[in-house]
Nucleic acid binder design. Structure first.
Lengths: 195, 195
DNA sequence: CATTTAACAGACAGATCAGTCTGCCTACCC
DNA sequence: GGGTAGGCAGACTGATCTGTCTGTTAAATG
């Protein structure tokens, strides 16, 4: 992974990572179109030249932001899958993560849905990346339900995604406790159908 | 309604209505922050002076946009409630409308959730208006379920709102047929609990 | 030691943003 | 017929947006 780790200690947070970290927080919290590159540059403490060297256009940074979020979730779920042998426990970990996130102060909704909502063109790279992420998510849940011998794993996965989307969208506006309780009921019903 | 219809034929769509109609379409389709007042002015075919006479600031137009959407939904639901005596039919009409909207080509998600997602400050007037709308919606569904003698009308209303939010958020990215089928299942289950 | 690379600093261009201002015109109502 | 209200046309300001440009500095590599 790191071809420099063998020799001298390179600066641990290069400019590109600082840019990505700043963009991740700002894009998620304030909205993609509301955040200018100048603000990201100031937050990341880099210069404009450095910024445009790593990301020649703002849209490339936006795509990197979505991909980073996608990667984080995939790593979490595949990690849970490899450490827990019971698929039901993986699903409960998934739901638990959603509940935790939705109740975190300053929660602002699903980053993927929000990102897609800020791009009107369905063929835009951002919308494509989000659609691909959701396709993977749906098939991941479907395969877990199939392992659990759920009678209709496709329907169950769609039901869980529906509840997930509703919980993440609603928690940023309505009371997160009420909303996540409804998510838990939906998830438990789906798991009961499988058992 | 029209105090001018008695005498001479006044222009049927005054400037303010044209502005509101243009803003409604543009804000919903392209996002609030992506649409500049110049574009609304061009689409509504008014002048800048006229625009700022009716809406002294862009934010006032945004609030009017959210209120207009709120009014439209309230009128639809209270209309259904007064014409149908069975609360279950009102709920089915509500679900039917969501399904129809979500499957319409060019559907872009829930206008309220999208509007709220574009304003980071929870105390902003837009976020407040959306929160109030959702509170009314939740209590409306709750009272319908109470009429139907649902054993836990609060939970049922939260479950339906969860499914509604998920359906509207997910349909703009994923396949609307799959998503709205999941919404129908959820709604039918809630209605079954009441019966 | 010489080269390359990544970062630094910051001015600049061109477009677009919200919002203001001056002035004219026309239809209605008293 | 005069007043008023609503709409027309369009120039203008100051801020902010994305993106480019010139030039400097420091460190690692060959």
């Amino acid at each position: 992974m790191d071809q420099h780790s063998s020799r001298s200690a390179r600066p641990p947070a290069p400019a590109k990572l600082r840019i990505l970290a700043a963009a991740d927080a700002l894009f998620y919290n304030d909205g993609i179109h509301s955040v200018g590159v100048d603000r990201i540059i100031a937050e990341a403490r880099v210069t404009k030249s450095t910024f445009y060297k790593h990301f020649p256009a703002k849209e490339l940074l936006i795509i990197a932001y979505v991909h980073g979020r996608d990667q984080g979730l995939r790593e979490f779920l595949t990690g849970q899958q490899s450490s827990l042998e019971d698929p039901a426990l993986v699903l409960r970990a998934l739901v638990g993560r959603i509940v935790t996130e939705a109740n975190r102060p300053g929660f602002r909704g699903c980053p993927f849905i929000n990102a897609a909502a800020q791009f009107s063109d369905p063929d835009s790279p951002v919308r494509r990346a989000v659609a691909e992420h959701r396709g993977w998510y749906l098939s991941f849940v479907g395969s877990l339900l199939r392992e659990l011998r759920h009678p209709r794993p496709g329907e169950g996965a769609a039901d869980l995604l529906l509840a997930r989307d509703g919980a993440l969208s609603g928690s940023s506006i309505s009371d997160p406790m009420t909303v996540t309780a409804a998510l838990r009921r939906s998830a438990e019903r789906i798991l009961t159908e499988a058992a």
